[in-house]
Design a protein around this nucleic acid. Sequence first.
RNA 1: UGUCCUGUGGUGUAAUUGGCAACACGUCUGACUCUGGAUCAGAAGAGUCCAGGUUCGAGCCCUGGCAGGACAACCA
Length: 562
Amino acid sequence: MINEKESSGKNNFIHQQIEKELQEGKNQGRVHTRFPPEPNGYLHIGHAKSICLNFGTAEKYGGLCNLRFDDTNPEKEDVEYVDSIMEDVHWLGFDWGDRLYYASDYFGKLYEFAVKLIQEGKAYVDDQDAETISSQKGTPTRPGIESPYRSRSIAENLDLFERMKNGEFEEGSRVLRARIDMASPNMHMRDPILYRILKTPHHRTGDQWVIYPMYDFAHGQCDFWEGITHSICTLEFEVHRPLYDWFIDQLTEDNYRPRQIEFARLNLSYTVMSKRKLLELVKNNYVKGWDDPRMPTISGLRRRGYTPESIRNFAERIGVTKVDGMIDVTLLEHSVREHLNKTSHRVMGVLDPLKVVITNFPEGVTEELEAINNPEELEAGTRLVPFSRELYIEREDFMENPPSKFFRLAPGREVRLRYAYFITCNEVVKDASGEITELRCTYDPASKGGNSPDGRKVKATLHWVSAPHAVESEVRLYDRLFTVEDLFVEKERDFKEFLNPDSLVVLPKCYLEPSVKGAPALTHYQFERLGYFNVDPDSTPEKPVFNRTVQLKDTWAKEKNR
RNA sequence: UGUCCUGUGGUGUAAUUGGCAACACGUCUGACUCUGGAUCAGAAGAGUCCAGGUUCGAGCCCUGGCAGGACAACCA
């Protein structure tokens, strides 16, 4: 959680600008933002940054934030995406109230506006095909040339545009263009296309329209009609701003103007953030779906075990600037650990079981030992954990020939079983191949509860599970999806070449303490000494499935690798 | 050979608008601990892309460079 001290006095450049405007009395003190996704994919952590910025900014200045679907391209969009986007925004903890809009709500007004531009001689119908128009556009360093249709009469343009709307022409045969400046140093001002013919049914308007406005012709006007004051978008739209302003200037003579402000999109190490690439991973089954826990999507992170709080704190921590950079995933991981450490219940679970027999503990007896649910929040209470003669411990918690820095169980060494007893290893049982199959230990009955009877110390406390009481579970371990930190520097090669083959490891047979039985999907736990895990929706009453959200920090692992 | 944007510890951000470069993550010590977690205490790490200039004083202002990015979809 980010406290006041950390967040105060750290205004990003957008908030600084807003505060300046507020002092000047601009927009009558109104702050109104919008989050405008195109419903052509699932939201990802980069969108979360934008959501937190837009909704957070409105919240901070007592303003409003709309949710608006930028649905001007029926070929890529779908209601499935609309639904998931609304779910994800809500899950993150934001609400748009009754301000749910669609660019398609404005198709009628946009059409009228286009007609007005034609009447003013500021737009024309171009009969050329895409290739020809593109070739006349010039390059960033060379001016374009004017279309032969540029100076058609207003009456002819009006007639043609109406017939475009009425479906009289084929897709691609005509477009409506703004008449601005083919020699502009800004490519977007070289008679940009306003409308194109598309005969694909739209997910909301069906076949009512066969002409669709382009992004540039829709976005700013929607902002204007909704009373948006700050239209926050990502850096790549910077060069669109003159066009954005040009349309608004044609629309109104008011003082009120929505202002486009650009910030740097989020780049996370070891992952991809483009919807195109994410879609490719899903479509070609490199992952199991948009909500695969390895995906950087909101739904993937949710299933992985991230909490809304952790994502919002992350967004706050990374800040907002115009500098293109790369955020280390470990910062995201830190954010979940921080939140889950405070909130999740502790539980014991053994992922790679090694059987331990307590030779001096009676057979057929079960003891119930009290364990603390969350040492960070004692009000969470305690639970009883069964203990018996046969247990499982983590295989890596035992070494037959331990190096000096290894504090855990070894032959002749005494350690504590958490909340249970001190045990000493007396015998190592192996199979024919030499693999350790069982440890035979004795316990000190006087150390019940894990308290040293005579003040003697042990260097390690191990987690364990009683064998006859263990809940057999599947546990899925995740690692980064890609093997390289920055996919962008490898843009010459197909990004799929860098997929991490070990991004998912399934452990089919893990043993967990019985208290996890029946926990609903998405319940968070800390498996003591291992990490944070949560219940996967694939769980059945017979066989729970857990996802590892993130490991605990592990200084031994670091030591081991030296 | 254009227009626009951006350069601050390893990473991400800050610097009261000209006043000893601060914070978080990470790293390294140490303390504490029934999680090698958490917590606590401390340390190292940049002189702000470069070169000039203005100024008592520049990360901030001016000039000139350099580097990186965006823009040539009937995508958003």
